[in-house]
Write a protein that binds this DNA or RNA. Structure first.
Lengths: 207, 207, 207, 207
DNA sequence: GATGAATGAGACTTCATTCAT
DNA sequence: TATGAATGAAGTCTCATTCAT
């Protein structure tokens, strides 16, 4: 019988993960020290090491958490779709609001994770799954839409999914470098460009 | 009277920078050690420190070199333009060939630089200048084209410039995570999407 | 809740300080390495750095300890005075016994500290306070004695205090250079010379 | 046949020694680097190492120079003596003027040399010879004076010589720590104290 | 003789990790 | 479970010294 509840254990784990995310957000993976994380979590090194075997383990867990959050988010988004025509608009608005609120959002961690991707297979796998999830949702949506006649049939769904990701990730980087970037002008231009792929079917309904 | 020529000094400096780039490419900025760089450059620590005051200095020089290369490249690209219609195609082909040859090209360093951007003001400045240069060239091109009637006049040139950057940087990340990405399908789709912004003027010539 | 008692922490700190003093005594501040100190203290570098932020910090602490010891010693000495006539003798005997037992006594560190004085403001301050303390005690004693009629009234108390210090420090240096110096002959001569400043009051008692 | 004259060689050597003295004066032996000395001497490392085998060699040469200067100085001083009575005054005035002009005078190097004495046998020997020279001159003078009846016969000449050195070296240290020390009040008090050893012979002449 | 680029041992310090309490 | 003192390998950087030119 465990001395403390599983809930307590989970809470401790999450507490550490949150602390680590805060540190990584501020100083990146390799400039954040375990001491930083311990202090932020208000826990001793010994306690932290009870929940994570190594710093690398924490990095992996953070990237896993990032993947899970991303997948959950995109899943939720897909459900709200009512009309193909407005889906991209909704999607785009939701995502770019994150960038606009850059400093409050852990999106900044993404860039750290991308860099880590080169050195850490598990992190790469996580990030790959994240991208795959996006692709599937975006691609699946486009595919459905094409069947229903909403989109030009000669657009490759997978590539289009990747392009949507690029719209987002690309601006993320630019905003990191220059916070004065006009996010909504950028979004507006995306909408204009992508409007060309829309068609006007006779009986528009959503799956 | 210097013992060796300035050319020799410059070559040594470049030798170190190349070695550093190779290391950074493999292990990132913060996991590459000065010893790694020394070994790669086949030089002693003392020699390296004759040319760079610190590891941070090398990182800065690398990001500066990256900026210079980017600006030079984009400058050259602009000069080859003969027809607005085909410019984007040329541009896109040239840029994405880099991604396709990913492992041989220092483009991968970009992601490291982006991450460093959060911690290092000088690196951020370099990267900011790189983005500005791109924006200017792309935006200037679009502006000229709009005046000449080649592009829809309601497209914001600056945002469009940023979007072109995102097309590239976004795929860079995705390729880093999953090397099997089909670059040319992605490019094809970009071309389809952006074709909608083109118009057909009567007398198409380029400034 | 601390893992170990404050007493243990204090003991560790003192252990390091003692080890450092031993090293400095042997090799001076700048030729003693942190490794030397660690080995002498039988502690790892990490442990030492828990207690002192830097080598410089240890040097400062050593000079502070030296000041504290000096001030304590001179304070105790002052209390033992029963008769102006014999005070100098007692004082001189006590101090020069240190020099005579040179190798066992940290007095040798003084010379290191003097040299450090040029480069290290904090060390200079410590040493300055040490000298001030001596001056006050010696000068105060002479002043009292002059009021009571024990000493020639035209002797400047502060200068005389400084001269007493010089008697000591000067021989310290000479003994360092030539350990065969006859300390007690030196002391004897000091007593003869300084005897001239004594007077013979009628009712000799000490405050 | 040498390519350059011996005079040129000697001048170069002295140039290096002067540069070293300037550096040592500013930063001490162990914080002055060979590069510092080279820069100060306006010479390359290779050139410096043609004249001195090592940094340690330079330190030794500096301490040797210091000894030579001291011995020369004290020798000259001895010759100027015309009257036992005023000799100490002259001596004291000459020496303490150095301390008063502290910043311009290499006396500060003495403290460095004393510290070095613990680690460097050759330096210790040099310093020992310096002290011996002083002792001989002072002691010899006192001995002569005692024979001629100028000084109390029960004063030990050697110890008195050491005390004179202590007067000087002691104040040197105090001035290093606190530049506001009143040198001449100190000197005045020395004179008062030492006046007690003087006698009044019938026919006062100097050897 | 002189130069100064290059060497490389070793200095100071950090920090991921362990383990006695 | 949790603590935090302790470890020690490894990192960045310095500097006395060498040697090809």
């Amino acid at each position: 019988m465990p001395k403390v509840s599983q809930a307590h254990l989970d809470a401790r784990r999450q507490q550490i993960l949150d602390a680590a995310a805060a540190c990584f957000y501020r100083k990146g993976f390799h400039l954040s020290t375990m001491q930083d994380i311990c202090k932020e979590a208000d826990l001793s090194p010994g306690a932290v090491y009870r929940y994570f075997a190594s710093k690398d383990d924490i990095i992996k867990a953070i990237s896993e958490e990032n993947r899970n959050n991303s997948i959950r988010m995109i899943g939720q988004m897909r459900q709200g779709v009512e009309n193909y025509r407005v889906f991209l608009d909704q999607l785009v608005d939701a995502f770019f609001r994150m960038i606009d609120e850059f400093d409050q959002h852990p999106a900044k961690l993404n860039i750290e994770i991308w860099a880590e991707t080169f050195r850490n297979e598990r992190v790469r796998t996580m990030q790959s799954e994240t991208f795959k999830a996006y692709e599937q949702v975006f691609g699946g949506f486009l595919r459905d839409g094409q069947k229903a006649g909403y989109f030009q049939p000669d657009i490759d769904p997978d590539s289009f999914g990747r392009i949507l990701i690029s719209f987002f990730d690309g601006l993320l980087v630019q905003k990191a470098v220059d916070p004065t970037v006009d996010v909504w002008a950028y979004v507006e231009t995306i909408k204009k460009i992508t409007s060309s792929i829309h068609c006007e079917p006779e009986h528009a309904t959503v799956a």
